[in-house]
Design a protein around this nucleic acid. Sequence first.
DNA 1: TTTATATTCAACTATCAAGTTGAATTCAAT
DNA 2: ATTGAATTCAACTTGATAGTTGAATATAAA
Lengths: 226, 226
Amino acid sequence: MSSKLFKQTLFDHLARVGKAVGQGHRLAMLEYLAQGERTVEALAGLTGLSVANTSKHLQQLRQSGLVFARKEGLYVHYRLSDPDVITLLGVIRRLAERHLGEVEALVNSYLLAKDAMEPLPREALLARMREGTVTVLDVRPPEEYAAGHLPRAFNIPLKELERRLHELPPGREVVAYCRGAYCVLSFEAVAWLREKGFIARRLEEGFPEWKLAAFPVENFLMEEIS
Amino acid sequence: MSSKLFKQTLFDHLARVGKAVGQGHRLAMLEYLAQGERTVEALAGLTGLSVANTSKHLQQLRQSGLVFARKEGLYVHYRLSDPDVITLLGVIRRLAERHLGEVEALVNSYLLAKDAMEPLPREALLARMREGTVTVLDVRPPEEYAAGHLPRAFNIPLKELERRLHELPPGREVVAYCRGAYCVLSFEAVAWLREKGFIARRLEEGFPEWKLAAFPVENFLMEEIS
DNA sequence: TTTATATTCAACTATCAAGTTGAATTCAAT
DNA sequence: ATTGAATTCAACTTGATAGTTGAATATAAA
C-alpha cells in the first residue's frame, strides 16, 4: 500500500468522526448523552425527532465510535463511548464561538449577553468552594443531579427556585450551573436571583466538563460508572 | 425566539465545524496547514486534487472558521485560523484510534506496528532533552524545519539520512519526529536507524502538537507568527 | 400463545455535497 | 493595453444524507 493511499484511507476513516458531529441533531444528542445514558425514546423526545430518525442517527454515532449501546429489556440505552467526546464538543464550541460570527451573535442575543453573567472558570469556583465563600446551585432536574453533581451543591430546578428560595443561605454569593456552556437554565437562574437581590453568577461550563476535568464530584445513585 | 429554536440553530452552526472536518481531503489539508501557510496550488499538489476542487474545499474551511486566507500578488495563502484546530484534529484522531477498529488495524499494518517504535510523549522527551541524554532528529524537509523546530534538533530529511549519518553523535539515543502522529517519515527513520545499530524511537506526536502545547521552539525564518 | 411496546429495517423522496469542466476574475509583468 | 498565471465561479453530473412511512424484530407480560 502506497503512502498516499494509506493517508487517504486513514483520513477517510477519521472523517467518519467528523461527519458524526457534522449534523445539528446529532450534536444535540451527544450533548444530552453527556449528561448520562438515554434511551432512544427519551432522546427522540428531547430532540423532537421521530423515533425512527433518532434511531438512525444513533446508529451513525455508534458506527463512528462516539457512542455505545446497551440493551436492557425492551430498551436500548445509549451512552458516550469516551469522555473525550465531551472534549470534542468543547473544542468545536470554542472554535465556533471564536470564528463564526453568527454563533457569537446568536448566543449573546438569546442568552441575555453571555458575559454579563460573569462566567466563572472551573478552577476559580473550586478555589472558592474550598474557601467556603460560595453557595453552589445546581439547577438541573433531580435525576441528573442524582447521577452526579458538584460537592455540596444545592439542587433546585429552575421552576422551583421561587418557592424554595429560602433554602439558600442569604448574603452569600451564588454560583449556578447546569448542563453546559449554553444551558439556558443557569442563565435564567442567575438573572432571576439577581432580581431578588442575590449576588449571583454562572459557572462557565457545565457538569460534564467539570467531571471530565476530574474535578470532585458527588454521586447519590450509581447510574454513572465514573 | 424559543429555547428549542435557539438550541437547534446553535447546533446547526456548530455542525458547520463538524462538517468541515467530515471529509477526508479537508482533514488532509488541515494537517498540511498545521505545518504552516500554503497556497492553493501547493495544497492541490500535496493532496492530488484539482486546483478548482481544492479551492472549493478551502472556501468551505474558511466559511466554517477553521482557516484564514491572505492574498499576496497572484497567490492566496491559507493558514489555520486558530491553534485549537490542531487540538480538534488530535481529539478526532484519538477517538478514531480508540473506537474505530479499522483505524487501529490500518495504522498498525502500514506503520510497521505503531507501538514498536516506542513512542515517547512530549513531556518525557522534554525532560530527556534537559538532561542532555538524547539526540533529537527532525526528518522533515528543510523548509518546514526552518519555519520552526525543537531546540537543538538536527535536520536530516529521510532521503539524506544514509549519506549524513555521520553527523549524528554516536552512542546516544535518537528521538525522531516529523509532522504528526501518522507521519511516515519518522517511522522509517527509526526503523532504518535501528538497522544501523542506533537506539532510536519516535516522538509520539509531531511538531504542530509540540508547538501547540507551548513547548520550546526554535525559529530560523519568521514564516510563523507564533 | 398472544399481545403490547421499543427499536430497527426497508423503501422511498427530496435535498445537499463532491468532483469535473470551461469560463471569468484578478493581479503582475511585459 | 495585452499577456500569462493563480484563483474563483457557474453549470452540471453523480452519489450521499436526512427524513418519512409502514413493516419487521425482539422482548416482556398477560
